[in-house]
Amino acid sequence: MRSALRPGTTLGTKLEERNYFKENSVTQPVRTASWQGRKLSLIGLAALLAVAGCHKKASPPPPPPPVMSAPAPTADITATPAAINAGDSTILTWHTTGATDVSIEGMGAVATSGTQTVRPTDSTNYHLVARGDGGTADATARVTIGTGNNNNANSGRMNEGDIDDATFHQNVKDIFFDYDSYEVNAPSASVVSQDAAYLNQHAGVKIVLGGYCDDRGSTEYNLALGENRANAAKQALVAAGVPAERIRTVSYGKEKQFCSEHDESCYQQNRRAQFTVDR
């Protein structure tokens, strides 16, 4: 019977695959021994037939060709601040999607998204080019170099970026979330409007919004939930007039906790969106 011969072939092939150690097979053919005949012959034969059947497909079909329609790339780049004095630095922040090859003229190939501190001596256009399977996109950020006192406002903003943490946290309070929720609730909404008012008065301060969760539940889900919390707080700030470019979100899930007690007051401490200065 064909199935009685097949196991030997199968094993032989398998041994060849495991060629990293010397091995001599002295395997004998399977015998239809009593234990098999008693209760496993059906199972055994079915398995061996299936094995034999599958084994004939020695070379699996190649993976299907990629049929995904590549989305057109997007690109944006900003310089913060956009106007500086000669000798000062500014931060380029760019973000692309759907791109495999991203470069900035004069700087060469760069990551698909990132930031870079530059110190141009003359007014400069930073031209971002993103190439992907779906086409090409580009964006330009202009940094103008001023001289002396007509750029006071901008140099003032530079100094605001160096705001000390104590002052920042006095004026920009963290917000807290309900259990397993990422909606900005009523008490948090009033905190957000105060935070936004301060941030709108100090237009040079960029912030990181960290999303945090309490210790219950699952690691991966809490990271996604923390991300939704940070984004909800960001949307609330944007709605209150803070430019989205000044806000970066990071989820910490339950990876970085304020406290570790298993009680509701600690859980509430951990369910928060926390503001820090983005440096």
């Binding site: 199968t10 079915a46 398995a47 299936a50 094995v51 599958c54 084994h55 497909k57 699996p60």
Partner: peptide
Amino acid sequence: KMRLFSWGGSSAL
């Protein structure tokens, strides 16, 4: 091959 092998055996069993 190994994986096909195990699936084949598995469904039959």
